[in-house]
Simulated scan of single mutants.
Amino acid sequence: MTVTRVVAVVLGGGAGNRFGGALPKQLVTLGGRTLVERCVSAFTQAPGVDEVLLVLPPGYAEEAARLAGDQVSAVITGGVTRQDSVRNAIAHLAARHAPDATGVLLHDAARPLVSQQIIADCVTALGKYDAAGTAVPTSDTIVVAEDGVMSHVPPRETLHRAQTPQCFRLSVIARAHELAAQDPAFVPTDDCGVVLRYLPDVPVHIVAGSERNIKVTYPSDLAIAEALLRSEQPA
Protein backbone atom coordinates (compact mmCIF):
# COMPACT_ATOMS: atom_id res chain seq x y z
CA MET A 1 0.00 0.00 0.00
CA THR A 2 1.27 3.49 -0.87
CA VAL A 3 2.02 5.94 1.90
CA THR A 4 -0.52 8.74 1.49
CA ARG A 5 0.19 10.79 4.62
CA VAL A 6 3.49 11.73 6.22
CA VAL A 7 3.70 12.83 9.85
CA ALA A 8 6.81 14.30 11.46
CA VAL A 9 7.17 13.60 15.18
CA VAL A 10 9.49 16.00 17.02
CA LEU A 11 10.72 14.11 20.07
CA GLY A 12 11.41 16.54 22.89
CA GLY A 13 10.17 14.47 25.80
CA GLY A 14 13.46 13.98 27.62
CA ALA A 15 14.84 15.83 30.62
CA GLY A 16 18.24 16.52 29.02
CA ASN A 17 20.16 15.58 32.16
CA ARG A 18 23.53 15.49 30.38
CA PHE A 19 23.05 19.07 29.20
CA GLY A 20 22.35 20.47 32.66
CA GLY A 21 20.55 23.72 33.38
CA ALA A 22 17.12 24.65 34.70
CA LEU A 23 15.24 23.82 31.50
CA PRO A 24 15.21 20.67 29.33
CA LYS A 25 17.75 21.26 26.56
CA GLN A 26 15.08 21.23 23.87
CA LEU A 27 13.76 24.47 25.38
CA VAL A 28 17.05 26.35 25.39
CA THR A 29 17.52 28.95 22.69
CA LEU A 30 19.69 28.85 19.60
CA GLY A 31 19.86 32.07 17.62
CA GLY A 32 16.86 33.47 19.47
CA ARG A 33 14.61 30.41 19.02
CA THR A 34 14.30 27.26 21.08
CA LEU A 35 15.51 23.97 19.65
CA VAL A 36 11.89 22.77 19.57
CA GLU A 37 10.79 25.80 17.59
CA ARG A 38 13.54 25.31 15.03
CA CYS A 39 12.62 21.65 14.51
CA VAL A 40 8.88 22.28 14.28
CA SER A 41 9.45 25.11 11.82
CA ALA A 42 11.70 22.96 9.62
CA PHE A 43 9.08 20.24 9.26
CA THR A 44 6.17 22.66 8.92
CA GLN A 45 7.91 24.27 5.94
CA ALA A 46 8.83 20.97 4.29
CA PRO A 47 6.85 19.91 1.19
CA GLY A 48 5.51 16.41 1.60
CA VAL A 49 5.07 16.61 5.38
CA ASP A 50 1.35 16.72 6.11
CA GLU A 51 1.38 17.00 9.89
CA VAL A 52 3.74 17.73 12.77
CA LEU A 53 3.34 16.14 16.20
CA LEU A 54 5.30 17.43 19.20
CA VAL A 55 6.33 15.41 22.25
CA LEU A 56 7.35 17.33 25.39
CA PRO A 57 7.98 16.43 29.04
CA PRO A 58 5.13 16.49 31.57
CA GLY A 59 4.30 19.97 32.82
CA TYR A 60 5.19 21.87 29.66
CA ALA A 61 1.77 22.12 28.02
CA GLU A 62 1.58 25.90 28.36
CA GLU A 63 5.14 26.26 27.08
CA ALA A 64 4.26 24.05 24.12
CA ALA A 65 1.23 26.15 23.24
CA ARG A 66 3.38 29.27 23.28
CA LEU A 67 6.18 27.75 21.23
CA ALA A 68 4.29 25.71 18.68
CA GLY A 69 1.03 27.57 18.28
CA ASP A 70 -1.02 26.12 15.45
CA GLN A 71 2.00 24.62 13.68
CA VAL A 72 1.48 21.23 15.32
CA SER A 73 -1.55 18.95 15.21
CA ALA A 74 -1.09 17.95 18.86
CA VAL A 75 1.32 18.11 21.78
CA ILE A 76 1.60 14.86 23.69
CA THR A 77 3.41 13.98 26.89
CA GLY A 78 6.67 12.09 26.70
CA GLY A 79 7.51 9.04 28.75
CA VAL A 80 10.27 8.10 31.15
CA THR A 81 12.53 7.00 28.29
CA ARG A 82 12.87 8.03 24.66
CA GLN A 83 11.25 4.77 23.61
CA ASP A 84 8.29 5.46 25.89
CA SER A 85 7.89 8.80 24.14
CA VAL A 86 8.01 7.12 20.74
CA ARG A 87 5.38 4.59 21.82
CA ASN A 88 3.13 7.40 23.05
CA ALA A 89 3.44 9.07 19.65
CA ILE A 90 2.79 5.81 17.80
CA ALA A 91 -0.34 5.13 19.84
CA HIS A 92 -1.60 8.66 19.19
CA LEU A 93 -1.08 8.33 15.43
CA ALA A 94 -2.39 4.76 15.13
CA ALA A 95 -5.68 5.85 16.69
CA ARG A 96 -6.13 8.55 14.04
CA HIS A 97 -4.54 7.34 10.81
CA ALA A 98 -4.38 4.19 8.71
CA PRO A 99 -1.12 2.54 9.86
CA ASP A 100 -0.32 0.97 6.47
CA ALA A 101 -0.83 4.25 4.60
CA THR A 102 0.95 6.56 7.04
CA GLY A 103 4.65 7.37 7.07
CA VAL A 104 6.37 8.66 10.20
CA LEU A 105 9.52 10.77 10.50
CA LEU A 106 10.88 10.46 14.04
CA HIS A 107 13.19 13.38 14.79
CA ASP A 108 15.07 14.36 17.93
CA ALA A 109 14.39 17.92 19.05
CA ALA A 110 18.08 18.03 19.98
CA ARG A 111 18.91 18.22 16.23
CA PRO A 112 17.69 21.76 15.45
CA LEU A 113 19.65 22.23 12.21
CA VAL A 114 18.03 19.49 10.14
CA SER A 115 17.98 20.61 6.52
CA GLN A 116 15.16 20.73 4.01
CA GLN A 117 17.22 18.41 1.79
CA ILE A 118 17.38 15.72 4.47
CA ILE A 119 13.65 16.01 5.14
CA ALA A 120 12.86 15.82 1.41
CA ASP A 121 15.05 12.74 1.04
CA CYS A 122 13.29 11.10 3.99
CA VAL A 123 9.88 11.78 2.45
CA THR A 124 11.12 10.28 -0.82
CA ALA A 125 12.43 7.23 1.03
CA LEU A 126 9.01 6.60 2.53
CA GLY A 127 7.66 6.32 -1.00
CA LYS A 128 10.03 3.40 -1.63
CA TYR A 129 10.83 1.70 1.65
CA ASP A 130 9.20 0.62 4.90
CA ALA A 131 12.16 1.79 6.99
CA ALA A 132 15.06 4.19 6.55
CA GLY A 133 17.43 6.12 8.77
CA THR A 134 19.51 9.24 8.26
CA ALA A 135 23.23 8.56 8.67
CA VAL A 136 26.67 9.84 7.72
CA PRO A 137 29.80 7.75 7.06
CA THR A 138 32.24 7.86 9.95
CA SER A 139 35.55 9.55 9.33
CA ASP A 140 37.04 8.06 12.49
CA THR A 141 38.29 4.56 13.11
CA ILE A 142 35.88 2.87 15.51
CA VAL A 143 37.07 0.30 18.05
CA VAL A 144 34.98 -2.24 19.91
CA ALA A 145 36.08 -2.48 23.54
CA GLU A 146 35.18 -4.63 26.53
CA ASP A 147 36.27 -3.75 30.07
CA GLY A 148 38.56 -1.06 28.73
CA VAL A 149 40.34 -3.35 26.29
CA MET A 150 40.06 -3.08 22.50
CA SER A 151 38.72 -6.30 21.04
CA HIS A 152 37.90 -5.48 17.43
CA VAL A 153 38.32 -2.77 14.78
CA PRO A 154 35.46 -2.99 12.23
CA PRO A 155 36.18 -1.89 8.64
CA ARG A 156 35.61 1.86 8.61
CA GLU A 157 33.95 1.82 5.19
CA THR A 158 31.04 -0.17 6.67
CA LEU A 159 30.39 2.24 9.54
CA HIS A 160 28.00 5.17 9.71
CA ARG A 161 26.90 7.53 12.47
CA ALA A 162 23.14 7.53 12.95
CA GLN A 163 21.18 10.77 12.90
CA THR A 164 17.49 11.64 12.71
CA PRO A 165 14.94 11.74 11.14
CA GLN A 166 14.37 8.00 11.12
CA CYS A 167 11.55 7.04 8.78
CA PHE A 168 9.02 4.23 8.91
CA ARG A 169 5.69 3.05 7.70
CA LEU A 170 3.56 3.46 10.83
CA SER A 171 2.46 -0.19 10.86
CA VAL A 172 6.11 -1.32 10.76
CA ILE A 173 7.44 0.80 13.60
CA ALA A 174 4.33 0.06 15.66
CA ARG A 175 4.87 -3.68 15.30
CA ALA A 176 8.58 -3.39 16.08
CA HIS A 177 7.88 -1.50 19.29
CA GLU A 178 5.13 -3.92 20.23
CA LEU A 179 7.66 -6.74 20.09
CA ALA A 180 10.34 -4.70 21.87
CA ALA A 181 7.97 -3.99 24.75
CA GLN A 182 7.79 -7.72 25.40
CA ASP A 183 11.58 -7.93 25.82
CA PRO A 184 12.65 -6.14 29.04
CA ALA A 185 16.30 -7.07 28.43
CA PHE A 186 16.57 -4.90 25.30
CA VAL A 187 17.32 -1.20 25.81
CA PRO A 188 17.33 0.46 22.36
CA THR A 189 19.04 3.76 21.64
CA ASP A 190 17.16 4.47 18.42
CA ASP A 191 14.25 3.24 16.36
CA CYS A 192 16.19 1.76 13.47
CA GLY A 193 17.74 -0.53 16.04
CA VAL A 194 14.29 -1.65 17.16
CA VAL A 195 13.34 -2.60 13.61
CA LEU A 196 16.67 -4.32 12.96
CA ARG A 197 16.29 -6.47 16.05
CA TYR A 198 12.61 -7.37 15.97
CA LEU A 199 11.77 -7.19 12.25
CA PRO A 200 15.00 -8.50 10.68
CA ASP A 201 13.27 -9.17 7.37
CA VAL A 202 12.57 -5.44 6.92
CA PRO A 203 15.57 -3.71 5.27
CA VAL A 204 16.52 -0.40 6.85
CA HIS A 205 17.85 1.87 4.11
CA ILE A 206 20.17 4.85 4.56
CA VAL A 207 19.28 8.46 3.83
CA ALA A 208 22.33 10.73 3.52
CA GLY A 209 22.71 12.95 6.55
CA SER A 210 24.92 15.98 7.09
CA GLU A 211 27.67 17.05 9.46
CA ARG A 212 25.56 20.16 10.04
CA ASN A 213 22.75 18.02 11.46
CA ILE A 214 24.43 17.87 14.85
CA LYS A 215 22.88 16.70 18.10
CA VAL A 216 22.95 19.11 21.02
CA THR A 217 23.85 16.95 24.00
CA TYR A 218 26.23 19.18 25.95
CA PRO A 219 26.59 22.98 26.24
CA SER A 220 29.64 22.80 23.95
CA ASP A 221 27.39 21.36 21.21
CA LEU A 222 25.15 24.41 21.49
CA ALA A 223 28.18 26.62 20.90
CA ILE A 224 29.00 24.62 17.76
CA ALA A 225 25.42 24.98 16.52
CA GLU A 226 25.59 28.73 17.12
CA ALA A 227 28.81 28.91 15.09
CA LEU A 228 27.17 26.98 12.24
CA LEU A 229 24.26 29.42 12.23
CA ARG A 230 26.59 32.43 12.17
CA SER A 231 28.56 30.95 9.28
CA GLU A 232 25.40 30.88 7.16
CA GLN A 233 24.44 34.49 7.78
CA PRO A 234 25.30 37.06 5.09
CA ALA A 235 28.35 39.17 5.86
Rank of each mutant, 00 (worst) to 15 (best):
T2A: 15
V3F: 11
V10E: 08
L11H: 10
G14K: 15
L23A: 14
P24E: 10
P24M: 10
Q26L: 13
L27H: 09
L30Y: 09
G32W: 12
T34K: 05
V36T: 15
C39S: 11
V40Q: 02
F43H: 07
A46Y: 15
L53Q: 00
L54W: 04
L56P: 02
L56F: 01
Y60A: 05
A61H: 03
A61G: 02
A64N: 11
A65D: 15
R66E: 15
L67P: 07
A68H: 07
D70L: 11
S73L: 02
T77R: 05
G78E: 04
G79I: 03
T81P: 04
Q83H: 10
D84T: 00
I90T: 01
H97E: 08
H97W: 11
L105N: 12
L105D: 09
L106K: 00
H107D: 08
A109V: 12
A120I: 11
A125T: 12
T134V: 05
T134Q: 05
S139V: 14
D140W: 13
T141W: 15
V143Y: 08
V143P: 07
V144I: 15
A145H: 09
G148Y: 03
S151A: 14
P154N: 01
R156Q: 09
R156M: 04
Q163L: 08
T164E: 01
T164P: 02
C167P: 07
R169Y: 01
S171I: 00
I173K: 00
A174P: 02
A176I: 08
H177E: 02
L179I: 03
Q182Y: 13
D183Y: 13
P184Q: 10
V187M: 08
D190S: 01
G193I: 11
V194S: 02
V194G: 01
V194W: 04
V195F: 06
V195N: 07
L199C: 04
D201W: 08
V204R: 01
V204T: 05
P219E: 14
S220V: 06
S220Y: 04
A225F: 13
L228Q: 14
Q233N: 12
